[in-house]
Design a binder for these strands. Structure first.
Lengths: 200, 200
DNA sequence: CAGACCCTACCGACTGGTTAGTATGCGGAC
DNA sequence: GTCCGCATACTAACCAGTCGGTAGGGTCTG
């Protein structure tokens, strides 16, 4: 039963946080399998004892990264989808936000999209289920617009969802912080492409 | 300097082929790092001696998979881009074909998009360069249409390319052979989304 | 207030198992 | 007879996870 020091009332202890962020960076940089537990603890300035005090296994660390990014993205999508605005506006905002959020948590999302298959069977199912909820929420927005005739229904909504998240997923392959466009500009363009594709 | 048996004049020997396809299947199924050389040779019905007779290393096998899929896709893109037809037609055909080809070589492309970061530095550069050529060819098609006014230029062509290939890349995450749509239908829909997004 | 006790947080050496790659041998085709 | 195509047995390295240990702050007791 991991800690909860008096120092940090709501969150994690300092060592725990350092371990998690060191792991995140190294996983994103070299991949999960190519990162040894020793490298992680060295980068965090502690030893294996500390790691296994806070985490059950190396897989556990990976799972924590997933849980964090899933939670953040779901919360943000819900907020945008629940807003009081026309459906086209809500969809555009949500579509752009996921791009910005993905770039803001670049290491996490890189790992997320690259290492799903490393997770154990049960954890993978868990992540998939969360991911499905997320996609369904997004799809509901598109279907809403299709029902009112604001969006074309030439292409099935779930395919449109995969089309858009494909591009988000793909960001890890080409986005560079020193690139020509800012994250916000990229997000606006990608959201624009989605809305353009949905014009009747 | 690998073989070239009298039996298969143009291509590879039977053992070499079996090794490569066993490796491809296992890499796609469990990932590169989680597949041991022993598993590969067992699946191919040979021993390590055979593998190291034909390939220099485990990484070498991965690289072969990459080279094969790159060659196939580049050839097909060139054929479609060089066709004698309006640019919208050529783009649509090329965009749909890459989807079908990706599904037809599902194991190869799954590995391709998932394991790039496992490659050594030099081989990775090589693959990136080939990939860039590929994208540039595709981008040229879009720019051609933008120049004539047939396509909207609201979004930069290179972003549009990444948008589309994002969805192709992403296929490995959701496509299932027993799904509702045939590969051809999926391809047509995705190409349709691209062309729709490019309407002025 | 002192001392006994304890518990959290962490250390670091060790282990058992796995792995990529190698060294050597051998049978059959030419 | 010799060389190609592969088998077999081996090794050196590595790595996730374990385990006994301990520093030091807190708490309980007399």
């Amino acid at each position: 039963m991991p800690n909860r020091t008096g120092k940090a009332p709501g969150g994690r202890g300092a060592v725990e946080t350092r371990l998690l962020s060191a792991a995140t960076r190294l996983f994103a940089e070299h991949g999960f399998e190519r990162t040894s537990v020793q490298e992680i603890v060295d980068a965090a300035g502690v030893t294996k004892g500390a790691l296994y005090h806070y985490f059950g296994s190396k897989d556990d660390l990976l799972h924590e990264v997933y849980a964090r990014v899933l939670r953040i993205q779901q919360e943000r999508l819900d907020a945008f989808a629940d807003a009081d605005a026309p459906v086209a506006r809500r969809l555009r905002d949500a579509a752009a936000d996921v791009v910005v959020t993905t770039i803001d948590h670049f290491d996490d999302t890189t790992i997320f999209f690259r290492s799903l298959h490393q997770l154990g069977e049960e954890q993978r199912r868990e992540v998939r289920a969360a991911r499905r909820r997320y996609h369904e929420r997004f799809r509901a927005l598109i279907e809403e617009g299709q029902a009112t005739g604001e969006f074309s229904d030439a292409v099935p909504a779930d395919l449109v969802v995969d089309y858009h998240f494909g591009s988000v997923h793909h960001l890890g392959s080409w986005y560079r912080p020193d690139g020509r466009l800012t994250p916000r500009e990229i997000a606006d363009h990608l959201a624009d492409l989605l809305l353009r594709a949905l014009r009747p």
